Amino acid sequence: PAAPSLNRGAVPLVHLFGRHGHRTPLSYAPLRRVLGPRLAFTETPEKADLLLSGFNLDLREGARTLAGLLEKRPAIKLAVISEEPLWDTTWSGGFTERQRSLSAGGQEIPYLMLNHQTSRIFEYRRLPYFLLTSDDFAARYRGLLEKQLGIAPDALLDRWRKAPIDQAFFAERRSGETYSKSFPALDIRGLSAYRSQVAECAGEAGILRVGKGWDEGQRRQELPDWHLDKIAQLKGRARIVSAYENTHHRSYVSEKIFDAFAVGGIPGYYAGPQHRVFGLVPETAMINTHGLTPPDAAARLAGFAADKAFAEAYLATQASLFRLFGDTDAIVSERRRVIKEVLAEIEALI
């Protein structure tokens, strides 16, 4: 006989399903600490009330397994919480509908699709989502920014002029239509190919390109600490640091632009007028190539001449970010907000 559905008042039992199960809000230790005992987790999918993945590709890959599980326990629910707009816009088969399904074993298996477009989970108040997934980000940024407080604008300009690295690009080299998909009505655009083309057009002298496709080293995600490696290579050494996201979405802000300020480089970015990054970093403290072709963007980066007003805006932004990353109440509050949204979605589903 089929197992009963979840008893009212019982703690839901969650299984992180598939190879992207570690890429959901519920897979990160800092967010799990905020979650507390309101959910329980199991390594055994047969015991779970909810199978949760970070990418619906996992559901397609595990379709036969899912069909077998649901035959035994039809009350099991499925959900995807995708933190990556790149995955959503390129390989998900659609990213604007919450209610999705896949075919397996002659049946349609429904699942809930939550992402930047279909939920409020990633609609941050003060700190973007990805910075909440590790305690390292705020701690590193605050330590690095503190050492740069009090620098005079003229000294900063002189450091940029003498920087051994004129432009640094840390991102996998990608090309083709898959990485350039555009959804104008939603103000969403794939930028992986764009930022690679900008890097290609940058020339050679003083240019650092790091990542799969640029060099023969291991994938950066396979390094013991890919973020620390980037910081160590660029700290105080780069004039411009590419901070282009893989996707232009108004609420998607990763670590990249903050890395630039942490290492003392000018961020190269791509953001339309409605982008929420401007609530954190004013346009007067970045090089925004929105609307420019890759060759024109590369020319803008190469020819950008920072003046004293720019240096003052940059230093003011560093000071603002220093305060933000030291605001533990804001960090905890933002994590609580994420968990509140996730729990509301799960409770409504099961």
Rank of each mutant, 00 (worst) to 15 (best):
H227N: 12
I350M: 08
A2C: 14
Y314C: 03
V80R: 06
R100N: 12
T118C: 12
A260I: 05
D296P: 00
F130V: 07
E46Y: 00
I109S: 09
Y252M: 10
G143V: 02
P45A: 08
T44A: 11
N115D: 13
K340N: 14
L301T: 05
R335L: 03
P295Y: 10
L149V: 06
K308N: 12
S82V: 11
A199I: 09
F310K: 08
D166E: 12
G206D: 13
F261I: 01
S192I: 00
R174W: 02
G18T: 05
R209N: 07
G217F: 11
F17D: 01
L132W: 04
Y252V: 07
K230T: 15
A163F: 05
K230D: 03
A79F: 06
R60N: 06
R140H: 07
A316K: 15
G217E: 14
P12Q: 06
A348C: 02
L26W: 03
I81F: 12
A316F: 04
E312T: 13
T89M: 11
A297I: 01
I76M: 06
I240A: 07
E43N: 10
G190I: 06
H248D: 11
R159S: 12
R300N: 04
V11K: 14
R38A: 15
L228T: 12
G326Q: 02
L112C: 10
L228R: 15
T24V: 09
T65C: 00
E97T: 15
A285H: 02
L191N: 01
G150E: 04
L57A: 09
L69D: 01
G272A: 10
Y129Q: 04
A163W: 02
R32F: 00
L301Q: 09
S175H: 11
P282Q: 01
E61R: 13
A10L: 14
N56V: 12
L112K: 09
P25F: 07
W214S: 13
L6E: 09
M113D: 14
G279Q: 13
D58K: 13
S242K: 04
M113A: 11
F41T: 03
F169R: 02
D327N: 14
R323A: 13
V198C: 06
G150K: 04
F310Q: 05
A193M: 07
G217N: 11
Y314D: 03
R336A: 08
G279E: 15
A155G: 13
A138P: 06
G143Q: 12
A297P: 00
A40F: 03
Q197W: 09
F41K: 02
Y252L: 10
A285K: 00
E97Q: 15
I121W: 01
D158H: 11
G9V: 07
S251F: 15
I339A: 09
N288Q: 03
G303L: 07
R23A: 11
P282S: 05
R220G: 02
A319M: 00
A309D: 14
L51E: 04
